[in-house]
């Protein structure tokens, strides 16, 4: 038997349909804007346009993990399965968008920084974030579909999100020593 929320959030639901088509249209529209409306950046050239995917993807990912955090708390306090479903779907969205960030980042960095990857704080934090939530998905996969898995993943959703500021802070301090070297040799050289 389907529970109430499963009936609400199937793909045939009107709201889901409207949002889905709106998304499709807006994505296409934004692609047109990126391709023709946005000017070509003077120093970085065409590759800079990847920003229009890179940055919003990072926002979406962070928002998604924020949603996971809130839904995880709500799940543990209420034990309403709805919140577990929200949290799990949100992690999937977040992981996909972090992956977009991690793929588009190096594509941009190679011509501009002349390296694919540097252990820069935001980059590194994003990578750690990705690993935390990949572990979340693995936990759900290995745990099987039951209430226990829901509880475990809620716990990880909470701990993981609390951890993010600490990860950023620590990596930021870690790289502080190296930033001067980066400046001396110039962004484009490093």
């Amino acid at each position: 038997m389907k529970s109430q929320y499963e009936q609400v959030f199937t793909k045939d639901h009107l709201g889901v349909k409207i949002l889905g088509y709106a998304l499709l249209f807006l994505m296409f529209f934004s692609f047109l804007l990126i391709a023709w409306y946005a000017p070509v950046e003077r120093t970085m050239g065409l590759v800079q346009k990847i920003f229009y995917y890179h940055v919003p993807s990072a926002w979406v990912a962070f928002l998604a993990f924020g949603v996971v955090f809130v839904c995880s708390i709500l799940y543990l306090t209420s034990k309403d399965k709805k919140w577990d479903v929200f949290a799990a779907s949100s992690v999937e969205i977040g992981v996909v968008f972090v992956l977009i960030v991690l793929i588009t980042g190096p594509i941009w960095a190679r011509p501009v920084w002349e390296v694919w990857w540097t252990w820069e704080p935001r980059l590194t934090t994003t990578l750690i974030l990705f690993l935390i939530y990949v572990a979340y998905l693995l936990l759900r996969y290995f745990g099987g579909k039951n209430e226990q898995t829901a509880k475990f993943s809620a716990v990880l959703g909470i701990i993981g999100f609390i951890d993010v500021p600490l990860v950023y802070l620590s990596i930021n301090w870690w790289r502080r020593k190296h930033r001067r070297i980066l400046r001396v040799s110039g962004w484009s050289r490093r």
Binding site: A135, L138, L139, F142, G144, F152, V155, L156, D163, S170
Partner: peptide, 25 residues
């Protein structure tokens, strides 16, 4: 948590290491 899921020996480091990055650094 890890004890109660499949692959528990692998699951623990996968969960633990990313979260303990700040401690390590």
């Amino acid at each position: 948590m890890a004890t109660n899921v499949k692959m528990s020996e692998v699951m623990l480091p996968l969960l633990l290491f990313p979260v303990s990055t700040p401690i390590l650094l």
